[in-house]
Amino acid sequence: MLGFVVRRLTVALLVAVAVSWLSFGLIFMAGDPAIAIAGSGGSAADAAAVREAYGFDRPIVVQYLDWVTGVLGGDLGRSVYFNMPVSEIVAARVKVTLLLGFLSFALALLVAVPLGVVAAMFRNSIVDRLALGFAVLGQAIPSFWLGLMLIVVFGVWYGIVPISGTDTWRGYILPVLVLSYYAMPAMMRVTRSGMIDVLDADYVRTARAKGLPGWLVITRHALRNAVLPLISLSAVQLGVLLSGSIVIESVFAVNGMGRLAWESLLRSDLPVVQAIILILALIYVALTTLSDVINALLDPRIRGRRA
């Protein structure tokens, strides 16, 4: 197990290095960043001043090494628009996005897994068809449209919850419902598919033949093996919820990382965009690595495979 963890951590470290290259290089791919920061109304002299102030006139390798050194020390640069450290701006917004993402993920998991298990136990029945219909509907409805409809019904017509902001816990209700419903279909279908496969396995039939209670067969024998693909999917889904909430944060006026990324792009605030890309990409790397380790703990066969 230790060897497997070391291999996965080594791969994660190499991916993190590649991510740092990409996040640093992205701001140069769209053109001269000095011109973008100077703005459309800036002159050549303004661009030259920006280039000198931010060190864009130095060799690209030197710029990258300085940037990485600063990141390792907690310095993500300085915002062009706010004229303050990027780390302070991101720290103020990342808490909202993390809370929104984890709440949405938890709700999606609590609904999708039992629904997938029940659908598999009663496959091809009306219960199974309703569960699949629920999943198809969730994949078909645009998240922004669902968010607007919830605002109209529960915020405007009935006034039950706030329609924007997260000043109180009630402000998280609608965004969490929309984001969780976005994540539920894939999680439910993977759970259902995995349960159908293991319910027909010999060891499950043997457990039933021994007279074990049905709930014990499902939870201890079937679900443990069926949940392996779900763990890998959950890591990806959580990463999507944390990084892909730009639309939902805009619809509900939530001041999180997604909205900050959009605003920074509009303002050509490249240091902030660069930091957000790096942070979200590293979150993805950490989540996928963690899911691999958890799968290896649950299934000893995975430990012997190459990372």
Rank of each mutant, 00 (worst) to 15 (best):
R301M: 08
V117R: 08
A296C: 03
K95V: 15
D197K: 14
M187V: 14
P162V: 04
L98C: 10
L242P: 00
A235K: 04
I160C: 05
M187D: 13
F252H: 00
G256V: 05
L199T: 04
V247F: 04
W145E: 07
S43W: 07
G194D: 14
G258Y: 03
R78K: 12
W21P: 02
D46R: 12
E263M: 06
G155H: 05
A108S: 12
A235F: 08
G70P: 02
D32T: 03
Y203E: 09
V272S: 01
L26F: 11
L260S: 00
M29T: 15
S87K: 05
L216A: 14
P271W: 01
V227R: 04
Y284D: 07
Y203W: 09
I126L: 14
L278A: 09
A209W: 03
D292W: 01
S245H: 09
W67R: 11
V86S: 00
S193V: 11
L13H: 05
T168M: 12
V11E: 09
N295V: 15
L270V: 06
A226V: 05
N124A: 10
R259W: 04
T168N: 15
W21V: 13
R220S: 14
F154A: 08
V113F: 06
L100H: 00
V153R: 04
W67A: 02
A44W: 13
A235R: 01
G211C: 11
F82Q: 04
L22W: 11
S291A: 15
W215C: 02
A36E: 14
G77R: 01
T166P: 00
A91K: 12
F56K: 02
V161T: 13
I89F: 10
R305N: 03
E263L: 05
G41L: 13
R51V: 00
Q274V: 06
V113A: 07
W157F: 13
V62M: 11
A47I: 12
S268I: 07
G258E: 02
V176T: 15
L98G: 05
D202N: 08
F56P: 05
A49F: 09
V247E: 11
A49S: 10
L280H: 00
T288W: 00
A45D: 15
T69F: 09
L2I: 14
A106I: 15
L179C: 09
A47D: 10
L238Q: 02
V15H: 08
A18N: 11
S234W: 02
F24E: 12
G165R: 09
R267W: 04
A12F: 03
D292G: 04
G41Q: 03
V198K: 02
V50K: 10
I27C: 06
R306D: 09
D200S: 10
L241I: 10
I89R: 02
E52K: 15
